[in-house]
Design a protein around this nucleic acid. Structure first.
Ligand code: ZN
Ligand code: ZN
Ligand code: ZN
Ligand code: ZN
Lengths: 171, 171
DNA sequence: CTATGTATGTAATATCGTAACAGGTCAAGA
DNA sequence: TCTTGACCTGTTACGATATTACATACATAG
């Protein structure tokens, strides 16, 4: 369905790609989504999102805060935490609990079930499509009479590039 | 297969049950597993596990520490973190990242893929069997060439009891 | 203009987690 | 026996993450 040439795709996170375009495009979709929701993507919030979009990795709140402060915004923790909370609440970013960090959402407005794949070598973070995982999770929960409202599905392991490098080094 | 009369089962976490027996039995299996692995379940470590086993919920490291200190063990953070790390490393407890907390493993020695179901009302934490979820996760990761080594699958929602109470209150 | 809701800034503090080092125990090996 | 080394426990000190409370600014509706 999706065309890698024109469409940002989950598989891109671990692959070489035109990330400037990838980030710019995702930001545009995030702005559209904010507009649709009537959520105000103010300067701090937009800047925070831009910072998260700079790479396919998760950033700690204090790291984001330093960047915001350098850009003339406040330099106290709530500045970062509030902007990040806004982004998460509006589906423009996700919290990666395993890393105590935040990552820009690559599919804003799509009502998706994100699965985070975290490379333990290069720290890259990919947001994989997790609909099937979520279905299995809902089923497992339903078996116990539990109703899932929010889920964190996070995996630590090796991305394709680092797995390849590891094999080469071992061989 | 499993008989609820004799066998602690995942479904028990959210149900009324003889928890004294449940905890005692789980502790015995944990001790057996430690023995099998040649891991030394020393007094602090055993006491930490007992504390975690007191209820089907997750406890913060400092909460465990307070309990350990009251029992005459050290009262500095590393005391608790080391004991908990030992338990996690040896499969006798799990870390619940969403809560920055730890929970006793209900299936020590079974090589299982735990899924944590966290009730946002009563704070109960159930360790559900997650083999199917893990399979779906591995598949989603494999689609991107990612090899999963460790995973955290955690869901927040309503347990059966609290869902029932909620319905009653709303109605 | 003024009231109201929302957004931002700051100070202070709470909570969670680790590094580094000191002593104690115990068993293997000189 | 004495020593060595592995492992466990304890303490100090600190670093990292997150929130509460309050003050200020800014919009816009009445
Ligand atoms: Zn990209
Ligand atoms: Zn997303
Ligand atoms: Zn029980
Ligand atoms: Zn378990």
């Amino acid at each position: 369905m999706s065309n890698p040439e024109t469409d940002p795709d989950a598989t891109l996170a671990f692959a070489r790609h035109d990330h400037a375009h990838c980030a710019c495009d995702t930001l545009a979709r995030a702005e559209a989504e904010a507009l649709r929701r009537g959520a105000r993507l103010t300067p701090v919030r937009k800047r925070a999102l831009e910072i998260l979009l700079e790479a396919h990795r998760a950033m700690g709140a204090y790291e984001v805060l330093d960047r915001l402060a350098a850009d003339g915004f406040g330099n106290q923790p709530p500045v970062a935490y509030r902007a990040l909370e806004f982004l998460v609440d509006n589906g423009l970013a996700h919290r990666v609990r395993r890393l105590n960090a935040f990552a820009a959402c690559m599919h804003p407005g799509e009502d998706h079930a994100p699965v985070f794949l975290i490379c333990r070598v290069c720290d890259a973070v990919a947001e994989a499509p997790g609909a099937a995982v979520r279905v299995a999770l809902d089923q497992a929960a339903a078996d116990l009479g539990f109703a899932v409202e929010r889920a964190n599905i996070e995996a630590l392991g090796l991305c394709p590039a680092c797995a390849g490098a590891d094999q080469n080094a071992t061989a």
